[in-house]
Simulated assay, not measured.
Amino acid sequence: MCLAIPALLVEKRAQDQALVALGGIRKPISIALVPEAQVGDYVIVHVGHAIGLVDAEEAQRTLALFAQMAPTDETPQP
């Protein structure tokens, strides 16, 4: 199974590189597949590469679903 997640593009860098923010973490990624992406856009990130754009509303809905699935301290341990 593959997982791609929306992340906010916060900085464009040289040579198709960029910086995204997700949940307080900033991560460098490649935007070579989505050269039209601009700072402030949400991109879909898979294994360090932006593979598409997503509108902000859809990105927020997706991130909210991921947050609901996150384990809590109350989750029983096996």
Results as ranks from 00 to 15, higher is better:
H49Y: 09
G23C: 05
A56L: 06
M69A: 13
M69I: 07
V43D: 03
A32I: 08
E58P: 01
A70L: 11
D16Y: 10
V54R: 06
A32E: 08
F66D: 07
G24E: 00
Q68A: 10
Q38G: 11
Q38Y: 00
A59K: 02
D73M: 14
F66A: 13
V54P: 04
R61Y: 13
V20R: 02
K27A: 11
L63A: 09
L33G: 02
A21T: 12
K27G: 02
K27E: 10
V43T: 01
L22D: 07
Q68R: 14
E58S: 15
A64H: 06
Q15G: 00
P28F: 06
V47D: 12
P71V: 12
L65H: 14
T62I: 14
T72A: 05
D55M: 07
Q15T: 00
A32P: 00
V43C: 03
K12W: 02
G48L: 01
Q60M: 11
A64R: 10
S30I: 00
P35G: 04
V47Q: 11
E36R: 11
K27S: 13
I51P: 00
A14F: 04
P35Q: 01
V20M: 04
E36H: 06
V20K: 05
H49R: 12
V54G: 03
L53R: 06
E58G: 11
I44M: 15
L33M: 12
A56P: 08
K27N: 09
L65A: 15
R61V: 14
E74Q: 15
D55Y: 09
G52T: 06
L63T: 07
V47K: 09
P35M: 03
Q17T: 05
Y42P: 02
D55W: 08
P71I: 13
L53T: 04
D41K: 07
I25S: 12
R13S: 01
A14L: 08
E58Q: 15
R61E: 14
Q17M: 09
H46A: 13
A37Y: 00
K12R: 15
F66S: 05
V39G: 10
E58R: 15
D73P: 10
Q38P: 03
K12Q: 07
Y42E: 01
G48S: 02
L19R: 03
A37H: 01
Q38E: 14
Q38V: 09
G24A: 00
R61Q: 15
M69F: 13
Q15K: 04
V39K: 11
V20I: 12
V43H: 03
E58T: 15
V54A: 09
V54Q: 08
G52W: 05
V54D: 02
A70V: 09
R26G: 05
E57H: 13
I25R: 13
V34Q: 05
G52H: 04
L22H: 12
A64K: 10
I29G: 00
A59D: 01
E58Y: 12
L33E: 13
S30F: 01
G40F: 06
F66L: 15
A70K: 15
T62P: 00
A21R: 14
Q17K: 14
A21W: 07
I29L: 02
D73S: 15
P35N: 02
V47I: 11
T62E: 14
V43F: 02
P28E: 10
A56F: 08
